[in-house]
Simulated assay, not measured.
Amino acid sequence: MPNTPHSAPSLWDISPPVYVGMPVFPGDTPYQQQWVASIGPGCPVNVASITSTPHAGAHADAPLHYAPDGATIGQVDLAPYLGRCRVVHAIGCGPLIEWQHIAHAMGNDLPERVLVRTYQQMPQTQWDAGLTGYAAETVERLAALGVRLIGIDTASIDPADSKALPSHQTIRRHDMRVLENLVLDAVPEGDYELIALPLKLVQADASPVRAVLRALPGTYNQATA
């Protein structure tokens, strides 16, 4: 029996857990945590110290990540990371998201934000060297439709072994923004409100985000069917 709109989730947490031992891009700085203060006699609080790549977990790349003169993540406009978005499924599409894999969801009133799910189940405990990226041509076509931010459930919008990073260079040319390492396993195709604000790290090339999707008022799509 179909769920009613009232029985569907109103908030989807699309951020993977961040923990010691979590997978990171090979060669990147792993997440580490130490306790520098612990509750006890003479100490009223617990305080941790962390060392990590800013690309840990769900994260936003800054233009500085792929352009030597690019803006840091603390300098970019926050508007692209907040607002209506469309989740599109291209599960098992292969090494690249081609236009044919997402064309079915590119209808009228396309939001400025598009997130693509490629995994049936995102691998949260191991590195995937065969991760799916975007084809640069797909990014070009999304930019032409007015898309300002693209997201993906893998660690990169380019294949892991890419040196030219054509999709990163395409978003650089179009001044687009990107979210990577999202967990979209439980999210049906449809439109949502995206909230994924990066930290104001004024010298960094990326920032972790706590990415969530919120049901849009009055929306009835596959998320509520």
Rank of each mutant, 00 (worst) to 15 (best):
L115V: 01
P159K: 10
K163M: 07
L216T: 07
E112W: 00
P30N: 03
A129L: 12
C93T: 10
H55T: 07
S52E: 07
T51G: 00
G133C: 08
P26L: 03
F25E: 15
V24L: 01
L115F: 09
R84L: 01
N181W: 13
H65D: 14
L213I: 02
C93W: 01
A164C: 02
C85R: 04
D185K: 05
E112I: 01
V116K: 05
G74Q: 12
P5N: 13
D205P: 11
G94V: 00
M22I: 12
Q33E: 15
L197V: 15
N3S: 14
K163T: 14
P159W: 09
L115S: 04
V202H: 07
H6N: 06
Y66S: 13
S49T: 06
V202C: 05
I102M: 02
Q33P: 05
G133Y: 02
V116R: 04
V147W: 00
G70F: 13
A48T: 13
P16E: 07
Y119P: 01
A225N: 07
S15F: 13
Y66P: 00
E140K: 09
N181P: 00
A62H: 07
I171F: 03
S156L: 09
A48I: 00
S7L: 15
A71I: 04
I102R: 02
A186K: 04
A56H: 09
L145Q: 11
S10R: 14
P166W: 07
A225T: 15
T170G: 01
D109L: 10
L142C: 02
L82K: 11
V18Q: 11
L184T: 04
A215Y: 05
R141A: 09
T29G: 02
R214N: 01
A136P: 01
L199H: 10
C43P: 02
P159N: 12
S207E: 09
R84C: 08
L115K: 12
V139D: 04
G27M: 12
G42L: 11
H104S: 12
P17L: 12
T170C: 13
T154K: 13
H55Y: 06
H6R: 13
I152D: 03
A215E: 09
V36F: 06
V20Q: 08
I50K: 10
T170W: 01
P166L: 08
S156A: 15
M22Q: 15
P111L: 04
P63N: 04
A225G: 15
G151W: 10
R86C: 05
V147H: 01
P80M: 09
H101Q: 08
H59F: 12
R173K: 10
A211C: 13
S10M: 07
I50H: 06
Q100R: 03
P111V: 00
G130M: 03
I39L: 10
P63T: 10
P159S: 08
L197Q: 14
S167N: 05
Q33T: 11
D153M: 11
L82A: 15
P54N: 10
G57Y: 10
